[in-house]
Design a protein around this nucleic acid. Structure first.
Lengths: 172, 172
DNA sequence: GACGAATATTTCGCTGGCGAACTACTTTGA
DNA sequence: TCAAAGTAGTTCGCCAGCGAAATATTCGTC
């Protein structure tokens, strides 16, 4: 069976970096995860473009819609969930508000706060982009049988728990 | 067993988006992959900061070092490998050159081209960052047994082949 | 040998996002 | 009750990267 890109990558490492300590299996998995990351990034880009949104607009709407309180959040909550600074989120919300996809409402209980809410147009455009993105994910995961997908999830779960509960230590 | 974030995510979807068609296992896998993406992004950020590099500087050096011709490339080749525009790569190389981590040499065979080469200092600082990044990957993958890691790689390979050979279709 | 098409890199104006600071407001503790 | 500390969101100056255009060069065809 021909080598995939990850195997070619690891073979190159063996050729050129024999003094760099690494585990083949770990390096293969890491490299493959980065290839899947690129696929997902590209599918987001395509889904956003298909409905006339910029990537950051789609990502922000998506972050808003998949909350516990779908379609409703504060800018700070959105910034945290999207891993974006408060200043950055302000700019994003400016763009979405201007496009009529969200609205900002002063909080009735806290005059420092505003409440972000997706508009009907915002929800509709998000759904359209989600359908396309869903197709891309189906195409990808269709490479596995149902049993394999369950096995993959069991293994990804173990990794995701570590990733979420023990993020790389921050610097002092 | 308590739910992980992905299971909570999918449960929310069931609660709120009963009319959005999706497959639980696909959605779980997709969500978990994005959590691993964040972990890797954070570990890159930490590794770069630890050696005094900005993320884009580390990423560019890394892209240069893992080539078939380690430490040597053209700006165009680097831009493609790093998924960055030629203009963006020019700026990145400006920064790395200024820091003494790469050097630009006119091509002997094509006066339009220049040859990018990592300096001794560039290779050294990349190695340092790689050690730290390697630790973070070991910590993550250590959640799996050797047999599980092999199984994961077999499944990721199937997905990576689809991701690399059938990227999401570009828009017209 | 001339010329049009293609390529390599850089420049330029613009954009999204950042850190820091600012303004307005809320919470806390004495 | 009030001042200090903390919080929410925005503004500002700066930066990394983009698309388009510019400049220089190469290549293929006639």
């Amino acid at each position: 069976m021909a080598e995939d890109f990850a195997e070619q990558h690891v073979a190159r490492w063996r050729d050129h970096w024999i003094d760099v300590e690494f585990d083949d299996e770990i390096e293969l998995a890491t490299f493959r995860l980065s290839r899947l990351t690129k696929y997902q990034k590209d599918s987001v880009k395509n889904a956003a473009a298909a409905v006339g949104l910029q990537v950051f607009e789609y990502q922000t709407l998506h972050t808003l819609m998949i909350r516990d309180t779908p379609g409703i959040a504060s800018p700070r909550e959105l910034a945290e969930a999207a891993d974006v600074s408060p200043a950055g989120m302000t700019g994003r919300l400016d763009s979405l508000e201007k496009a009529g996809l969200i609205k900002r409402t002063p909080s009735p209980t806290d005059r420092r706060s505003i409440i972000i809410e997706a508009t009907t147009a915002g929800v509709a455009i998000w759904r359209q982009a989600m359908r396309q993105r869903g197709e891309a994910e189906k195409r990808l995961m269709g490479a596995l049988s149902a049993k394999e997908l369950t096995t993959l999830n069991r293994l990804l779960r173990k990794l995701a728990v570590v990733a979420d509960e023990h993020p790389p230590p921050n610097l002092p």
